[in-house]
Amino acid sequence: MLTPVVDRLLCMAEPHHDIEDYQSGLVSRWCVGCGDNAILTAMQRLCRDEQLDPARTVFVSGIGCSSRLPHYMGTYGFHGLHGRALPIAEGVKMSRPDLPVFVSTGDGDCLSIGAGHWMHAIRYNMDLTVLMHDNRIYGLTKKQASPTSPIGTKTNTTPKGSYLEAFDPLSAALGMTNVSFVAQAVDWIADVLYQIVSAAYRHKGFSFIRVVQRCPEFMPGAFDAYVQDPQKTVILQHPKGIALSPALAKVYKNVREHDPSDLAAARALAQEREAIPVGILYRNDDVPRYEELRGAGRLRTTDELRRGLDAELDRFTIWSDTGPVPQ
């Protein structure tokens, strides 16, 4: 660990970071028009604007097209297992509460194989910024139905159309104990996406953002209706939430004032099907964070360890070299 003096010296020498510092130098392998590119750009911009130290920033992901994101960041990254991005990120945070930790996960990764972890992650409310790239399909494994595929979606496992109503992650998240930040973004409104990830990063707690993400490869045209008709998007505006730029305000006229501290209103919004709500549905800055409750990051000195071990061994000592030990 750094001593405060060294910390200060490092501060003085703190270089300014440009956007390139957050690029790994790898060219993304996502398809042309893939919404993941927009999410990557938003994250790189966020890191730059917040001047995060690339050496002290971690991006964690699961497995899927979307989970490739950490490879394109110039930070530390952990591309983990399918469905397990969240527990890995929790472990990182618990061991290093001093580092900002971001998570990229897909709709299959987060809501299907990793659904159990997701529920509990919301309840732990650790300070993680989570982007759920929701293309409503399994991309990497080439077009199988995902929990968020709209009913009737023709995929390789549902050639005649999927059978079940799509899973609603926003309602589920808003129903979970300790929920502290839920937002929805779309990859094609870059400025709003940016505002949301920025608010999510600044929120101290588990920020869950569902990013509706285009997959031209396997869901071509699936989001066209929304992209082409601005009326099909409800922008949630509020001083505690996001604000539309004048330019966007000319296009997106379906705007609603929504106070993100109003959980009942957030739940009602999540249920709307006519138009997709975009903005911060809910935030509560007062939910305790698990890493704080557990005292993460507290360092133990070797002396403390020695004393701790000795105190335990004392309890179990039955014989000393001078005879039996009464306690």
């Binding site: 983990g80 397990r84 890995i88 472990g91 061991s95 509990h120 133990r300 105190a311």
Partner: peptide, 27 residues
Amino acid sequence: KVGGIVHQAEDEIAAVTFAIGASYAGK
């Protein structure tokens, strides 16, 4: 008493991956 964290995870998969994340970023 001494400091340190026992995290009772939601299942064993979470337990092992949590431990891996913790190891990755520290001890």
